[in-house]
Nucleic acid binder design. Structure first.
Lengths: 180, 180
DNA sequence: CGCGGATTTCAGATATTACTGAAAATACAA
DNA sequence: TTGTATTTTCAGTAATATCTGAAATCCGCG
């Protein structure tokens, strides 16, 4: 007899390994986009989970503390990327992620617009307001560049707004057609 | 007579104050997008500067060390957002930023595609490959979600590729028209 | 060569961000 | 109300990312 116990379910083990790698790597990718690694991991985990998970299950899967899990779960709810669901007969909260990629995309776009694009516009407008009346060469160039940037960001803001308010069924085919 | 010396050039002082705030805030915004604060600040500084700046001038303006300035300047060159220029009669390097917003946008899109979108596609394809043959319910759901994500990211990749290869003069008016 | 200004490197210091874990607060059933 | 499961908070700790500054290297010039 072998000293190595035979793996009782190699398929399941393989699935777990791949899923874990996905969750881990998704976390890494998230940090490149300014998203907290753990938050991206929890999101990834819930996106590919068929059932809703409790805080304890998330803690166990990702080997993280309660406080960490809790905070990041709340943040994800704040972003609108996951929601809490009540299971009958269960006292604790369970969480599930939106699975529809288009909806996920629109949610992220909306939140980024609100949290980062808007503040950029406010900053640029303010810079323009406070330098428009100056006539020093440097100042004029500054104001002019700020205006160009501002117009661009404002345009991006409205385009993203339009897209995120559209139906997937209207935008996607149309994008695909335009892409050829 | 006043103890406060009269400011010799209030306009210039105001301009400096606004520009400094712009540079600082742009750095903050950058970090929300996963960009090193100092790198974003150097980029901001060069974007609104009418003249090219040396490493020493950048160090002075942002009050940072030589090593810090140097590394971030190299990174910006790596992104293609700034370039070094030689001034005749000067031994040291000077740097200037691309000022055209559309070009800046396309450069960032191209680099993000290469550095972050492509790796995501590789990850997703790999996850799909390694789970496609499994028939456990969980695994099937995982593969299916990975496929949906992958298709979406691939589509985003091509759309962004198309846009960043287009002429501003072709895309912008067209976007504006579509937006109304 | 050898000098001197400019650039590059990198080990150690610092700052920032994220995480832990236990205590406090809360919610709910009996 | 009281006991218990669950959630929330947060001070302290850890991990990571960033920065400093001095030494090493590079490079054009006489």
């Amino acid at each position: 007899m072998s000293t190595e116990p035979t793996n009782p379910n190699p398929d399941r083990a393989r699935f777990r390994a791949v899923r874990d790698e996905f969750v881990t790597q998704w976390g890494t990718l998230g940090s490149a986009w300014g998203i907290n690694r753990t938050m991206a991991q929890i999101h990834a985990l819930l996106m590919v989970s068929t059932v809703s998970l409790s805080t304890d299950e998330i803690m166990e899967e990702l080997q993280i503390s309660r406080g960490n899990a809790h905070g990041n779960i709340r943040d994800l709810i704040g972003w609108g990327l996951i929601r809490s669901v009540v299971k009958k007969g269960e006292r604790k909260e369970f969480f599930e992620a939106e699975k529809d990629v288009w909806k996920i995309f629109c949610t992220i776009v909306r939140e980024r617009k609100r949290r980062e694009i808007r503040p950029a516009i406010v900053l640029l407008r303010d810079c323009i307001d406070r330098t428009e009346d100056l006539d020093d060469t440097e100042a004029v160039a500054f104001t002019s560049q700020a205006k160009v940037l501002c117009e661009f960001v404002e345009m991006a803001d409205s385009v993203l707004g339009k897209i995120s308010k559209s139906e997937q069924s209207k935008v996607l085919p149309w994008l695909l057609k335009w892409m050829t």
